[in-house]
């Protein structure tokens, strides 16, 4: 089950934060098809937020086809996110770890590594879109 948290200074609308956290959990395999999302009441008891915000987030996830509300039962995960399988994830994570170690050996600090990674990601996807 996913546990929500709030980032108050982020400027991101609360319902968007909940949507993003569910998607993040789907990408990491923390939530799988069939899993139940916490009820509005459970989230409210945890975070003291407006239940309408939770329902709005769930409606958005339902609209995107990721979850399904079953009346009287709750909201359930329908689909998973992320192109690759879980084992693929592990393999990619390992090779990326190797790359990061290499980068650090070459004298890059954390900010350098993040900037380089972000720029390669942007370049890669940009190339794909124009191709």
């Amino acid at each position: 089950m996913v546990t929500f948290h709030l980032d108050k200074g982020s400027g991101v609308a609360t319902y968007v934060q909940l949507v993003q956290q569910v998607k993040h959990a789907l990408r990491l395999g923390l939530l799988e098809p069939g899993d139940r999302l916490p009820t509005a009441k459970e989230v409210v008891a945890e975070l003291a937020i407006n239940p309408n915000t939770v329902l709005k987030a769930y409606r958005e996830l339902e609209r995107e086809g990721l979850v399904e509300g079953k009346p009287g039962l709750g909201t359930f995960v329908k689909k998973t996110l992320g192109g690759a399988s879980f084992t693929e994830h592990a393999r990619l994570r390992k090779s990326l770890g190797g790359w990061v170690r290499d980068a650090r050996k070459s004298g890059l600090d954390q900010e350098d590594v993040e900037a380089l990674f972000a720029s390669v990601v942007v370049d890669s996807f940009r190339g794909e879109r124009t191709a």
């Binding site: 108050k8 009441k41 409210v44 008891a45 003291a48 937020i49 407006n50 239940p51 309408n52 915000t53």
Partner: peptide
């Protein structure tokens, strides 16, 4: 108050002059 709203779906109208108290609770 939020738990009661989750249970009953009632409408709440509340006044305040402290806006930070209302973030995440009012819509």
């Amino acid at each position: 108050l939020m738990e009661a709203v989750a249970e009953t779906g009632m409408t709440v109208l509340l006044s305040s002059h402290v806006v930070s108290d209302l973030e995440n609770t009012c819509d």
